[in-house]
């Protein structure tokens, strides 16, 4: 992963986090919170290109920003995002994610797993109410998978296309 790509995706995730916060403040009713930054991490992980450390770094920073923006204990999302990134990278070659419904299914499964992971990691904070906290995970995962993932993946693909090097400028090694 190039530096530019990493920074671009970081900034995108960061702005999406801010936007989500604003929208939540504006909505007059309560909705399950979609995990937008997680979808950026998933997208990068499923792409599977570049060094895993770079991907993990981006996931860590995005997780850190998520922690700060969401008021979660710092390190919680940073840790879970890195794990999701690595798992997504590992599964990328075995998963076929090209259609929208496939994106939705994978996004739902990842969001569900991530929610469970977050609750599990943060369970000491819940004072034995971790199981109750799990109840909100499916709705949030559904929201993330159905509403956010398809749109966000399309948007991120567009960014990737913009960042892709022009084939006319590519040189064969030794030429």
């Amino acid at each position: 992963m190039s530096f530019a790509r990493g920074v671009t995706f970081l900034l995108t995730g960061y702005l999406l986090l801010i936007l989500t916060g604003s929208l939540r403040a504006l909505l007059p009713f309560s909705l399950p919170v979609p995990d937008v930054a997680l979808m950026v991490v998933l997208y990068l992980g499923l792409g599977g290109r570049g060094a895993p450390s770079a991907h993990a770094g981006v996931a860590l920073i995005l997780g850190y920003l998520t922690d700060l923006m969401s008021g979660a204990p710092r390190g919680l999302h940073a840790l879970s995002f890195v794990i999701v990134m690595l798992l997504a990278r590992a599964a990328a070659s075995r998963l076929m994610v090209s259609r929208v419904w496939q994106e939705m299914v994978v996004a739902f499964a990842v969001a569900l797993g991530h929610g469970a992971l977050v609750v599990a990691v943060a369970s000491p904070m819940y004072d034995g109410e971790a199981l109750s906290a799990l109840r909100q995970v499916p709705a949030s995962a559904l929201m993330t998978a159905v509403i956010v993932a398809p749109l966000l993946f399309r948007f991120l693909r567009r960014i990737d296309r913009k960042l892709a090097p022009d084939p006319r400028t590519l040189r064969m090694p030794g030429s």
């Binding site: 993990a56 204990p73 710092r74 390190g75 919680l76 940073a78 840790l79």
Partner: peptide
Amino acid sequence: REWVIVAVLIALPVLFLRANLKSPSDI
């Protein structure tokens, strides 16, 4: 080296998390 970096990147948030769980109001 890659995996070492990845391991550090996993360990780092764990450390952060431990510290933060002790004193969540500190930034």
